[in-house]
């Protein structure tokens, strides 16, 4: 029985369900070296990422389709993500799971990525700055054999600065 399992979906957690981030403009435009590092790390060497002639359909070379999902970097006025690394139990991940969203304050230590649902429209191109809008679509708890598990469902919309849509994402993050 699960009477003793704590309810982590407190009023404070419930209050952030539906929270929407202000539009988050990437700190810098998509850059050729970022595209290179991305496609090399994925080991996806399709010419559309580096050969203008092969990328004619796209109007020139493009970033890999999933690139915008990782395009938001630390801003200069943001705390150093390594500042808490001296804490041996710190996992290195901000509990504000997206820039501009509030933290999900749940006393569960392990964070896992549960998966994504993507709808893809257009590649980002060098020189474009990516705008991200995020929303906590749902936060809920399930009680498994190993204890409580909290699911955080995040909807993300990625566009160019001029409002052309790139992709939509629904990401489920898991705390346990």
């Amino acid at each position: 029985m699960s009477e003793m399992v704590p309810d982590y979906i407190t009023p404070a957690v419930r209050a952030v369900i539906g929270a929407v981030s202000p539009p988050q403009l990437a700190t810098h435009p998509v850059e050729p070296s970022e595209i290179r590092r991305f496609h090399q790390a994925v080991m996806d060497h399709a010419p559309r990422y580096w050969d203008e002639a092969a990328a004619a359909r796209y109007g020139g070379v493009v970033a890999p389709m999933g690139f915008p999902v990782h395009a938001h970097r630390r801003a200069e006025d943001q705390e150093d993500p390594l500042a808490a690394m001296d804490r041996p139990d710190f996992d290195g991940v901000d509990r504000a799971l997206r820039p501009g969203l509030p933290e999900v304050v749940v006393p569960l230590k392990r964070l896992m990525n549960g998966g994504y649902e993507y709808e893809l429209f257009r590649h980002a191109r060098p020189g474009e700055r990516i705008v991200l809008r995020s929303r906590y679509a749902d936060i809920y708890q399930r009680n498994g054999r190993t204890g409580p598990i909290v699911f955080v469902v995040i909807e993300d919309s990625y566009e160019t600065e001029t409002g052309e849509r790139l992709l939509l994402s629904v990401n489920t993050m898991i705390l346990r």
Binding site: E34, R37, Q40, A41, V42, H70, R74, D91, G92
Partner: peptide, 15 residues
């Protein structure tokens, strides 16, 4: 391979 990806993404997840 893991380091190359994490560095490119600036992903600091310790695992």
């Amino acid at each position: 391979h893991i380091m190359r990806w994490s560095a490119a993404m600036e992903n600091w997840h310790r695992i």
